[in-house]
Write a protein that binds this DNA or RNA. Structure first.
Lengths: 211, 211
DNA sequence: GCGTCGTTCGACTCGCGGGTCGAACTGACA
DNA sequence: TGTCAGTTCGACCCGCGAGTCGAACGACGC
C-alpha cells in the first residue's frame, strides 16, 4: 500500500514550486469567478471562496493582495481571452468583413461562456478600484474597437451594411453580454451551436449591400 | 414681498399631508435609482442618497424600512411601467404580431431609459432579500412571457418567424437591456429615434414568413 | 537531527455603513 | 397658548467582513 499522503488541501503532489504557485492561483481565480457570478461580488465573502476550496481566508492573502485584485484578475483573464488569443484574430484584409465578423462572434461567445468571461460581463466595474477599473474599461474599449473596425471594413467591402456603427456594435454586444443570464454550458445546446444560431441573427440584422 | 418661507429641505409648500408623503417618497426613489445605477447599489451608502437630497439618514428611514426596500421599490416601479402601463398592451388578436412586437419594444425601450427601468436592468437582483427577489424575478418573467407570446403568435399569423422562441427573446432582451450602458437621454438621439432604429434591427433579425 | 524557506491557519483588529433612539421642531387647530 | 400628530435630525450602536500577525507545519538540503 502506498504511503499515506499527508493532508493537502489542494490534493496534488508537489513538483515545481513556482509552477504549483501559479496553478493554485488559477484554481482560486476560477472558483472565485464562479462564485462572484453566481452570488454577486459583494454578496461573496472571502470566507465563501476559502470554504469552497477547503482552505482558510489568510491563505487567499498568500496568493492575492486583496479581494479587489481577485476580481481584477478574473476580468483581465476574460479580456485576454479575446485580445491575446493564442491564435490572433485574422487581420483586416484577410477574407471578407463578414467572415471576420463571424470569427469575432465565435470568439466572443466562447469567452462570455467561460467562467472568466461570464464574470467580466456579469459583475460590473463598480467594485474595482480606480486604476484597475481604468485598465478593465480600456480592455473592453479595445474589444469594442475590434467590432467597430470590422463593421467599418464591412461598409467598404460591401459585405456588412449598417448606417450607425456605434448603434450596431452596441446592439450586438448587448445580445452577447446577456448570454450568461440564460445559457448554461451543461444544457442541451453546445457552445458551437449557440454561436452559429446567434451569428445567424446578427447576419440577418446586418445585411450585405443590396446587389 | 411674500413672507419668507421657513427652510424646507424639499422646497415645496405643504398642502395635503398624505399626498406630500407619497410625493417625497417618489423623489427619494428617483434619486436613489439614479445613484444606484451610477455607482452601483453596494457602492452607494444611505448617506450618499441623503446628502443628495439635503436630508439626513434617519429621515430616509421615516419613508422606507431599509436600503433593500428602496431598491425593491425602484425595481417594482420599473416593472410596473410595462406590466401595468396606463394604456395596457393591445391584446392578442388586435393587429399583427409584428405590430404588437413594435409596440412592445417601444414600451420596453421607454422603460429601460427611465431611471427606474435603468435601475432594474443594471443592478442585479443579488442584493435583494429572498422575498423581494422572488417578486422581482416574477415580474421579469412576466415581461419575458409577453415577448414570447408575441413571438408565438407571430409564428401563427406568419408575420414573425423564428425557430427558437427562447433564443430569440433572449437575443432581443439582451440588446435592449444593454441600452443604459451606452445611451444617454440627453444626447443627440431622442428616445423615439432610438426605438425606431432598434426596431429596424429586430425586424431584420426576425423576418416574416417567406412569401 | 537541524536550519531554512515556502505555505498554511487560528485568532485577532478595525472601520464602514446599515439601522435605532429619543429629543426637537413644525404647522394645524381649538 | 397649549396640545398633538407628523416630520426631521444628532448621536449612537453594533455586526459583518476585509485585512493582519505571528506561530506552526511541511519538505528539502546538509
Amino acid at each position: 500500500m502506498p504511503k499515506a499522503t499527508p493532508k493537502r488541501p489542494w490534493g496534488e503532489a508537489i513538483q515545481d514550486r513556482g509552477e504549483q504557485f501559479e496553478l493554485k492561483r488559477q484554481v482560486v481565480l476560477r472558483t472565485a469567478a464562479r462564485i462572484y457570478t453566481q452570488r454577486g461580488f459583494h454578496e461573496t465573502t472571502l470566507a465563501d471562496i476559502a470554504d469552497e476550496l477547503n482552505i482558510s481566508k489568510p491563505t487567499l492573502y498568500y496568493y492575492f493582495r486583496s479581494k479587489d485584485e481577485i476580481l481584477f484578475e478574473c476580468h483581465r483573464l476574460g479580456i485576454e481571452a479575446i485580445t491575446d488569443g493564442e491564435t490572433p484574430m485574422p487581420p483586416p484584409g484577410s477574407g471578407t468583413a463578414r467572415e471576420r465578423l463571424h470569427e469575432f462572434l465565435r470568439r466572443y461567445v466562447r469567452m462570455v461562456v467561460d467562467d472568466f468571461g461570464t464574470c467580466l460581463v456579469m459583475t460590473g466595474t463598480n467594485a474595482l478600484g480606480p486604476e484597475n477599473r481604468a485598465e478593465v474599461v480600456g480592455g473592453r474599449r479595445q474589444i469594442d474597437g475590434m467590432l467597430r473596425e470590422i463593421l467599418e471594413e464591412g461598409a467598404r467591402d460591401g459585405t456588412l451594411v449598417c448606417d450607425d456603427v456605434k448603434l450596431t456594435s452596441m446592439f450586438v454586444f448587448g445580445a452577447m453580454n446577456w448570454i450568461p443570464h440564460w445559457y448554461h454550458r451543461d444544457g442541451p445546446v453546445s457552445v458551437e451551436a449557440l454561436s452559429e444560431r446567434l451569428i445567424a441573427f446578427v447576419d440577418r440584422a446586418v445585411p450585405p449591400a443590396r446587389s
